[in-house]
Every structure is written in C-alpha cells, then in structure tokens.
C-alpha cells in the first residue's frame, strides 16, 4: 500500500469499461479506483462523472457518504481498528487510543511521513479474537494496549 502512480486516462477508462459504464456500478468503480491509487484523486471523480454521464455532485456525494472512501492520500500502511461490540467490551477503545497516542494521529488521519493511516471499522466479523486490528489486510487478534508498540514497530 503506497500512494501509487498517477491516474492515467487509459487505466480509468479500462475500469469504467469493465463495468460496461453502468451508473449502477458507481460504488464498485470507486472501490476499484481506490484500490488502484490508495485514495480517490480529484481528477478521477471528474473522469467518472463524464464517463458514466452522471453529475459530478452525485459522484462526490457517493464518494463522501461511504466510509470506505478517502479523498485524501493515505499512508503506506492502513491500520483498521475494529470497534465492533465484541471488540468494544474487550477494550478496543483503549487500543485505538494507544495506537493514536503512539502515532500522534486521530482516527481518519495519516501520519506526517505518510507511513500510517489509522481508520476504524464497525466490525470485521472475527469477534472471537477481539480486540482486533487489521493492518494492510493482516489480522492481529487479542491485542492488548501493551502490545501495540511492538506491533507498530514491525512495519517499515
């Protein structure tokens, strides 16, 4: 996960075409673009609006409504702290605070060196292992506050 290459027209067109330019697939298209660039660069939204023939306001409202999308560049490593109920009763709030303290960021923010972005997720469905943190898709379960530092240090 890095802030990857700049969006090219070809790439965007191929994503739009893979969904047959169906406006109903807007969410999926945005997901693919975010997977490609790590966030939704401004010019991609304009391109989608033209490519699907839907107003830019609609593209923007969808992109800002859903939690999964970011309009700002994100860090190389995406930390997702699960705040599901099972994790909550097992102390996920304290884990979130500790990660935020170590990195000096709040949920949704990115560290200045673009190494980490910390986000929260409602539930990842691995409740048996709460509190759970997912970094770049890798799950770390039964995480207590005293293990946070070591976990963060294992990423470069």
């Amino acid at each position: 996960m890095t802030t990857k290459n700049k969006p090219t027209k070809q790439k965007l067109t191929s994503i739009l075409n893979s969904y047959e330019r169906d406006p109903g697939m807007l969410v999926a298209i945005l997901q693919d673009i975010q997977a490609e660039y790590n966030y939704l660069p401004k010019e991609t939204l304009t391109h989608i609006s033209q490519g699907l023939d839907v107003p830019l306001t609609q593209v923007y409202s969808v992109a800002t409504f859903f939690k999964a999308f970011s309009l700002k560049p994100r860090g190389r490593h995406i930390i997702n702290v699960c705040l599901g109920t099972a994790c909550h009763v097992r102390g996920a709030g304290r884990v979130l605070e500790e990660i935020g303290r170590q990195l000096d960021i709040k949920p949704g923010e990115t560290t200045k060196n673009f190494k980490y972005t910390m986000e929260t997720v409602n539930c990842v469905g691995a409740c048996a292992l709460g509190p759970i943190v997912v970094i770049d898709g890798k799950y770390s379960g039964q995480l207590k506050t005293d293990k946070v530092k070591t976990l963060l240090e294992s990423y470069d």
């Binding site: 109903g24 807007l26 969410v27 997901q31 969808v62 409504f65 859903f66």
Partner: peptide, 24 residues
C-alpha cells in the same frame, strides 16, 4: 455488488439506492 461501509445500507431502501449507484 460490494457495499461501501455504511451501516444504513442494511436497510432495504438504502441498499437499493446504493445498488443504483446513489447515496445509501
């Protein structure tokens, strides 16, 4: 169709709005 991380989309009319490419 993949959701975008909105709890309200579990509600049927919101889910359908999202399937149409609109805000849920």
């Amino acid at each position: 169709s993949r959701g975008g991380g909105a709890f309200v989309c579990g509600e049927s009319t919101a889910l359908m709005a999202s399937l149409e490419g609109k805000v849920g």
